[in-house]
Every structure is written in structure tokens, then in C-alpha cells.
């Protein structure tokens, strides 16, 4: 199917600012799903609130646009109720790490088979450029005009520490790499998280003199390195890209189903025992 066939074209042109990276991530998600050969009816997108969450409105799958930060809670419910569906939560950095921080770490801890795609633009774009938990130390937002004195999270390390069994990081510049990572994340059995560094030229770029979308993407190109590359040893200040965690661990829904089966078996044994007495 062509990329366009996955869009709700009546909502286009989309509402994001010119050069916003979220559209690139949305395109990456479509291509990954297309490569996986998934039927539209097999995919559920669950989003919260924010610029990134609009993805769920633009794509023609089963979609839910839920409460701010709560996408993963709704997604967990969908997955438990319909385990055969692929559940994907497109989220922003504020949505996922501030408002929904608890849902994120607990979804990771449970290792539920849901894929979180976190578009990290280091700012709250929709509400006017307030600093988020991903705004780096000393960087500016409308709520930190002299530069924030908060330190930011490292999404990948946080997810890893919380127990996510698949964690990857890439940027909107690295579009092909992103498609492959989203593809592998959806295929992974367990909680998977892909952090995509995305540009917000309107707020983050403008407040921090980073130039237009193109300049910000050049920043991603020049400021990140592949995991395990020599360059990273020489320049530890660069951001590492790649699949940072990929391990097999018992998945939550499978464990739940196993438990039900085991208890049913035990009950049947008890009932048979009682009947024969």
C-alpha cells in the first residue's frame, strides 16, 4: 500500500508547524508498519495529549486520543483485552516523562507488549514552549528565559532502568534508521521504546538560537553517533544512537494468560477430586 493509503487525508495538510519533526516520525511509523505487512485492523494507536499525540488522529488504524500522559495506561488495557493486536503509543517527551512518567516506568517494569514511540523535542510545543523534563540544563524555554537549572532525563537510561526490554534512540535526520528501529520495536515481544529526537523549530529552536528545522536536523546529524562507534570513545559528549537494549524477558500478557490457565487447571483438579470423593 502507498503511504497515503494509511492517512486520513481529510485532515491534511496536517496542523504541525513547517519543518516540525513529528511528521517525519509519523512517516517512519507508516513505513515500518507497511514493511511488517500488518493489516490496518491489526494496529491500535493510543495517544495522549500534545503535538505528537496528533499522530493518532492522522493515521487510519484503530486509534484512541486519550488523556494527557495516560496513553500507556489505555494501551495496556487494549493489549490485555485484545492481545493479538499491535498496540503502539506515539507520545511526546512531556506527555511520556512528566505527566505520564509513572505510567511509562510501570509499563516498562511489567514488560507489557506495547511500543512507545517518544518524539523528544525537548519542549512543550503545543502549549507555548514551556520547558519539559527533557529540556537540557541551561537551555531556554518560555518558562526558563535565563536557561533552565533543572537537569533533564535520559529517556533511554530511564526506560532501561525501569525494565524495558527493547530501547532504541535515533533522530529525524536518520529516517532510514528510524524505520528499522520502529519495525524491530513493534516486532519485539515485550515493552519497547523508541526515542526519536525531533525538532521543534517554532519554540525550542527559536528560544535557543538553533536556527530553522534544517539547522536543527544538521545538529542531530553532527551531534549524534552510532552505538559502539570509535567516534563515541573520542567524543563522549555526543548522543549515542542505536538499539541500546534488546533482551528477552517474560511478557506481561503472556504471564497473565499462563497464570489464568494454571489456576483453571488447579480448580478443575480440585473439582474432579471433590466429585470422586
Amino acid at each position: 500500500m502507498a503511504v497515503k493509503d494509511y492517512l486520513r487525508q481529510r485532515f491534511f495538510p496536517q496542523i504541525w508547524c513547517a519543518g516540525c519533526g513529528h511528521g517525519i516520525v509519523m512517516g517512519g511509523m507508516i513505513r515500518a508498519i507497511e514493511q511488517l505487512g500488518l493489516d490496518k485492523n491489526e494496529v491500535v494507536l493510543v495517544s495522549g495529549i500534545g503535538c505528537s499525540s496528533r499522530v493518532a488522529g492522522y493515521l487510519d488504524f484503530h486509534t484512541m486520543h486519550t488523556l494527557h500522559g495516560r496513553a500507556l495506561a489505555f494501551a495496556s488495557g487494549v493489549k490485555l483485552g485484545r492481545p493479538h493486536l499491535k498496540v503502539i503509543a506515539p507520545m511526546g517527551d512531556g506527555d511520556a516523562l512528566a505527566i505520564g512518567g509513572n505510567h511509562l516506568i510501570h509499563a516498562a517494569r511489567r514488560n507489557i507488549d506495547v511500543t512507545a514511540i517518544i518524539m523528544n523535542n525537548s519542549i512543550y510545543g503545543m502549549t507555548g514552549g514551556q520547558t519539559s523534563p527533557l529540556t537540557p540544563f541551561t537551555k531556554r524555554g518560555t518558562t526558563a528565559v535565563f536557561g533552565t537549572i533543572d537537569h533533564c532525563f535520559d529517556i533511554a537510561q530511564l526506560a532501561k532502568g525501569a525494565g524495558a526490554s527493547f530501547v532504541a534512540r535515533t533522530t529525524t535526520y536518520h529516517a532510514k534508521e528510524m524505520i528499522k528501529m520502529i519495525h524491530d520495536a513493534i516486532n519485539h515481544k515485550g515493552f519497547s521504546l523508541v526515542e526519536v529526537m525531533s525538532q521543534c523549530p517554532t519554540y525550542y529552536g527559536r528560544k535557543n538560537d538553533l536556527g530553522a528545522a534544517v539547522d536543527m536536523m544538521k545538529g542531530f546529524r553532527d551531534g549524534t553517533v552510532r552505538k559502539g562507534s570509535k567516534k563515541l570513545e573520542e567524543h563522549p559528549e555526543f548522543v549515542e544512537r542505536g538499539v541500546l537494549v534488546n533482551e528477552a524477558r517474560p511478557e506481561y500478557v503472556s504471564s497473565y494468560m499462563d497464570l489464568i490457565e494454571k489456576l483453571r487447571g488447579e480448580r478443575e483438579n480440585l473439582e474432579q477430586g471433590a466429585a470422586s470423593r
Binding site: 503511504v3 519543518g19 512517516g27 535526520y173 524505520i179
Partner: peptide, 8 residues
Amino acid sequence: ELRCPDVA
């Protein structure tokens, strides 16, 4: 095509 944010 891959980098166009507007799917244009």
C-alpha cells in the same frame, strides 16, 4: 520522501 514532514 522519507524526511518530508508533510508527507508531500
